[in-house]
Amino acid sequence: MARLDDTNLATAKEIISRYPRIKSATIPLLHLAQEQDGYVATDAMEHIAELTNTTPAQVLGTCSFYEMFKREPVGKYLVNICTNISCQIMGGEELLHHAEESLGIKGGSTTADGLFTIEDVECIAACTEAPCLQINYRYFHKISNDQFDEVIADLRSGGRTDEIPPHGTLARIRQHIPADRAAGNADPAGIPEPIWLSAPATAPPEGEKA
């Protein structure tokens, strides 16, 4: 329901500053909004449109293209079970059915307590570790039904919060480009040929720069 708060607005401005064209920040800012609220609220999209000098329709156009962006609240834990080919033939669909029975919901829906949402997802790049799943995009490889139940029980009882932040949070480490080290954005409107191309770099000093 919310626009970006002051802290996130500051983060948003830092993110925007890293792109030669501010519209490029649209997806990072949508992630930021989802981190703030657990989903991407309508107000947040309007706020992002203001920040990226676009229209809300454009932000929604981008937002709705990508599956990770939820425009309605989902569970605190989003359980993404892969059923794509490598997982399918190694028991991914059976794992999905177990999860559905165990949590008492169908894929695509959320438990009544708002804790869990199950999704039947496409390949998540853990094919040799099938069947696999992600909870809030943290991997669980070669997971058995019992292991699944155990993780769910832990999460229900408030455990594993270090391992798995609430839905919306991806990387808990952010990139920061130190001002004194920044090379600066390359303006597409035109910058000259980089110096090192025409005048090759002098031989690097031995060892690293202090």
């Binding site: 999209m45 309007e46 229209t55 329709a57 454009q58 929604l60 293209f65």
Partner: peptide
């Protein structure tokens, strides 16, 4: 006036406005 836009994806792609815009 970018007030209508593609939304969603693939076979579910649609043209629409932003809600209440």
């Amino acid at each position: 006036d970018t007030l209508i836009h593609f939304q969603d994806r693939g076979n579910g792609t649609q043209i629409n406005t932003f809600p209440d815009h």
